[in-house]
Design a protein around this nucleic acid. Structure first.
Length: 210
DNA sequence: ATCCCGAGGG
DNA sequence: CCCTCTGGAT
């Protein structure tokens, strides 16, 4: 894809979603971190169903510790990987309480040192909560980048590096959500809706997946 | 490479 | 039944 095509690509995704943002529900940075941790291999729709009642009680790491691990695990039962997620969220709350004054750290190093927080989750928090121009490559973005030819790569890190190089700077801050929304609703994994795709003429598949 | 692991869609 | 969903740890 040429630089001009990439410019077109994001201009059209922007036109389709003028004010993109995460579809995860949260009221503060700690809840954002928790919601992103819970979103692994789960639809954010289900994450929101789980967090909607839960976040009325859990507003701080101390609230998580007060709830206790067994009750937390029980509250997360509807999510896949729920035992692992409960353990990680609880252990993360402990560390935030003991070493970060109950706050979510704003550096990649400190974030990825938290149990259950890897590069992708750290990138989301750094971008959404702290406004940094990171590129969190999730299942949607990995697929869209490869399928369209925007940023082909065999690993998520390779795709992340390429995306940071090829995305026009003015689009970088919101590129994460534009690519996610495109992958979630149009460039779907199983049955992509090329008929509704605003960038079909720029795509490496040329709409041949329909 | 494998495990974790519920729910929805096809 | 199989595939997929804003992954991370071992």
């Amino acid at each position: 894809m040429t630089p001009d095509q990439r410019q077109q690509f994001f201009e059209r995704l922007q036109a389709a979603n003028p004010h993109p943002g995460t579809e995860l529900h949260y009221h503060n940075t700690f809840q954002l971190l928790m919601a992103v941790m819970l979103s692994a291999q789960s639809t954010d729709r289900r994450v929101n169903q789980v967090t909607q009642p839960l976040f009325e009680q859990l507003k701080t790491p101390a609230d998580v510790l007060a709830l206790g691990l067994p009750a937390l695990e029980s509250a997360l039962r509807q999510l896949g990987l729920y035992r692992t997620k409960a353990r990680h969220v609880y252990a993360t709350a402990q560390i935030l309480e003991q070493h970060h004054g109950g706050l979510v750290p704003a550096t990649r190093e400190a974030l990825q040192a938290l149990p259950g927080v890897g590069r992708k989750t750290a990138n989301v928090v750094l971008n959404v909560a702290f406004g940094q121009p990171t590129m969190a490559v999730d299942t949607h973005i990995f697929r869209v980048a490869n399928r369209t030819g925007l940023a082909p790569g065999k690993t998520v890190l390779a795709v992340e590096t390429t995306l940071l190089q090829v995305i026009p700077p003015s689009f970088l801050n919101h590129a994460h959500h534009w690519l996610i929304l495109h992958g979630r609703y149009i460039c779907r994994a199983r049955k992509p809706d090329c008929g509704l795709c605003p960038v079909m003429d720029l795509c490496a598949t040329g709409g041949s997946l329909v």
